[in-house]
């Protein structure tokens, strides 16, 4: 069962967003986040909401699955909105009771903040995590950071570490299952008891897991050396990243996005914060 846990949240497909170069998507996501914080008016938020819905539609990822990525953040969104209602001051006082003052501006600000976080999560997940494999993402990060190699930042080594970590997640999960079964067979009890007992019960799992992880690391290092690995220098790659038509399309989409936000801010500044 645990073996089938997918790495990241990749949702397979063949949309423009799937086919676009991961570097382009990474840059687009950064642009999206930054621009989201420039949106100030109701019209702007309406525009970005429409734009994000458009992204979800072209990504081909079912809405139900997109909303799943929002669920763990519901509490944070609610809390942010709640705090903003009470802490924002303004001109139009709506409600007063003791030390509690609620202003119209507070409510608007809270709504905008909640919407902003919601859009951030949805946009990022369809533009990046749902449509890009972790491996492609690692490659993109390595490529984009490669100028840093000139100042001796070990970019390749970090990317390699990421890849290996991803490779071993399922292996270690499987191993954890095995160790748990082995300990259960010896009478270990993981279910009953309070929090402290439960945490203590994990020790007989963690110790063998760590020992074996170190053994694996050792084996892997030898195996990598035997396959002539000696760092990033002089290495070629099986798959090189190429910008293509989809990236031009993505560029066009981002231009519309940026232009739309600027226009909304300049010409339709109603109900702004």
């Amino acid at each position: 069962m645990m073996k089938d846990v997918t790495l990241g949240q990749y949702f397979g497909g063949n949309s423009v967003l799937h086919r676009a170069d991961p570097r382009a998507k990474l840059l687009f996501s950064l642009l999206y986040i930054v621009m989201l914080f420039f949106v100030k008016s109701a019209a702007g938020f309406a525009f970005v909401t429409l734009f994000t819905v458009f992204l979800v539609l072209i990504s081909g990822v079912p809405v139900k699955i997109v909303l799943r990525s929002v669920r763990p953040l519901a509490l944070i969104i609610a809390l942010t909105a709640f705090l903003n209602i009470f802490w924002t001051t303004g001109d139009t006082l709506l409600f007063e009771w003791g030390f509690i003052h609620i202003y119209l501006e507070g409510i608007i600000f809270a709504l905008f903040m909640a919407l902003r976080i919601l859009l951030l999560v949805v946009g990022m997940s369809v533009a990046l995590t749902y449509t890009t494999t972790p491996l492609a993402l690692t490659d993109a990060i390595e490529e984009l950071l490669s100028p840093l190699k000139k100042v001796h930042v070990p970019v390749h080594d970090f990317a390699m570490m990421m890849t290996i970590a991803m490779r071993f997640i399922p292996t270690l999960i499987e191993e954890t299952d095995k160790i748990m079964d082995a300990q259960k067979a010896r009478g270990a009890d993981f279910e009953s008891g309070g929090l402290v007992e439960k945490a203590k019960a994990l020790i007989p799992i963690l110790i063998p897991l760590f020992v074996s992880a170190f053994k694996r690391a050792d084996d892997l290092a030898v195996a990598m050396e035997c396959r002539c690995y000696r760092g990033g220098e002089g290495r070629t790659k099986l798959k090189e990243l190429h910008y293509g038509k989809c990236d031009l399309l993505l560029l066009a989409i981002s231009t519309v996005f940026v232009a739309g936000i600027i226009l909304c801010n300049v010409f339709l500044p109603y109900i702004s914060i």
Binding site: M166, R167, T171, C226
Partner: peptide, 13 residues
């Protein structure tokens, strides 16, 4: 060289 444990010699995903 091919080693004993198949899991510990595969690098990529």
């Amino acid at each position: 060289m091919v080693f004993q444990n198949p899991d510990n010699q595969l690098v990529a995903t």
